[in-house]
């Protein structure tokens, strides 16, 4: 098994945290993992992205030229990554901020009104985890439970109280993904 994911959005949307969380979960399941962030001036207000690979075998290149899966959190990121997607790859979109249809017919699209749902849950900052919950449910890269466990590594001290709402966000995303997969 080797799963390659790109996560892209505005700086501040939790792109990096979602990626690190998946990487940590992969590590906890004793898999090989690489987490490669974009870095530099584009992080301040512009788009940010990260490449995460989770594999049963040692990972050679940490760079994903053609993603088989992508979590896209804003419109500029869709414009950037849609043309790069591998055939039959999956785009998981934050529909709230992407008022546009995907043009390509050879990719799967799971479009989630994630920001709206996050607000309903009581914290718009968990948009990223709704999408991540959906991703792991569709791609089965790691189990949802491991991702929840990994939250403890990142949300410590004052942030510890945010764990339940983040877990809820992961569950919500998973639920939507199951409907998408026709499992519900």
């Amino acid at each position: 098994m080797e799963k390659k994911l790109v996560i892209a959005g505005f700086g501040g949307q939790g792109v990096m945290l979602a990626g690190e969380l998946l990487a940590e979960a992969g590590k906890e399941e004793e898999k090989y993992v690489t987490f490669l962030p974009s870095y530099g001036p584009e992080m301040r207000g512009g788009t940010a992205n990260c490449h995460v690979i989770v594999s049963d075998n040692p990972i050679a290149s940490p760079i994903i030229a053609n993603p088989e899966a992508a979590i896209i959190m804003n419109l500029p990121s869709l414009d950037k990554f849609e043309p790069l997607m591998e055939e039959d790859g999956i785009l998981i979109l934050n529909k709230t901020l992407i008022p546009k249809e995907v043009q390509r017919k050879d990719v799967r699209v799971l479009s989630i009104d994630a920001l709206t749902i996050a607000k309903e849950l009581g914290n718009e900052k968990v948009t990223n985890l709704i999408l991540l919950g959906a991703y792991v449910t569709v791609e089965k890269t790691v189990s949802l439970e491991t991702v929840k466990n990994a939250l403890k590594v990142f949300l410590t001290g004052k942030k510890e109280k945010l764990i339940p709402i983040n877990e809820k966000a992961l569950d919500k995303g998973a639920e939507i993904a199951k409907e998408f997969l026709g499992e519900k």
């Binding site: 993992v33 690489t34 490669l36």
Partner: peptide, 10 residues
């Protein structure tokens, strides 16, 4: 290089 500085791995 910068890439090795910024990327994470177990």
């Amino acid at each position: 290089d910068g890439l090795m500085g910024q990327m994470m791995e177990p």
